[in-house]
């Protein structure tokens, strides 16, 4: 039990310190790496409380895909050398009021959430669904999501689909004059379309359509 507690505190300490380092770190790429460390330690915490499915999904989705795209964008946009202005500027940055507003809203939301927080023994008394302790994590999640909460689940899938289509529509631009390779055209080409024999008149030349 003591070892469990020690490991828990190590992971939560890493999570909190790396979350702070995300905002403090001066190099944007380092920020992303701290974000990854944060995700990893949070997924370790998930595994420690027995939610191994959530922990692994956290690793696969956030660390394996989302953070890679973050890194990708940060590296491609070459903002790596841009210094973090929070500590350098003397209050001139116009982002600070907006950031403060957002953080105050999140702070109050957190207060509301934690105010209604139920700890595990109280929670177990009040919930209606029976907990089957024989099932593994994955099975019980699946049997709840795909039966009782199927509409909410489908709805969140729809929201993601809309977001995906929106992202594609916003970034899609059709350029004219781009030469694209068409496999079907290439494969279905034979000697007749490829080669044309022309009798060339002297001093006239041939006109080739471009």
């Amino acid at each position: 039990m003591i070892a469990h507690a020690i490991v828990f505190y190590i992971f939560s300490l890493i999570a909190i310190v790396s979350a702070i380092m995300v905002t403090v770190s001066k190099n944007t790429v380092n920020s992303v790496f701290f974000l990854i460390l944060d995700f990893i330690s949070i997924s370790c915490l998930f595994i420690m409380i027995g939610a191994e499915f959530l922990g692994m999904i956290m690793l696969i989705v956030y660390v394996g895909a989302v953070a890679v795209l973050f890194l990708f964008v940060v590296m491609m946009l070459n903002v790596a050398q841009q210094k973090n202005e929070w500590f350098n500027s003397s209050g001139r940055s116009s982002h600070i009021p907006v950031g403060l507003l957002v953080s105050i809203i999140i702070f109050f939301e957190l207060i509301i959430v934690i105010g209604g927080w139920k700890y595990k023994p109280d929670l177990l008394d009040s919930i209606a669904i029976e907990i089957n302790t024989d099932l593994t994590n994955t099975q019980s999640l699946g049997s709840v999501i795909y039966t009782d909460y199927i509409h909410l689940f489908q709805l969140s899938g729809m929201v993601l689909l809309v977001a995906m289509i929106g992202a594609i529509v916003l970034t899609f631009r059709q350029r004219s004059g781009v030469k694209r390779q068409s496999y079907f055209k290439q494969i279905s080409r034979d000697r007749k379309d490829g080669i044309e024999l022309v009798d060339v008149e002297n001093n006239k030349g041939v006109k080739i359509d471009a």
Partner: peptide, 14 residues
Amino acid sequence: INVGILYLFAVSSL
């Protein structure tokens, strides 16, 4: 572990 294949997938995606 229960989620062995997910673990493999996660590590290979890292």
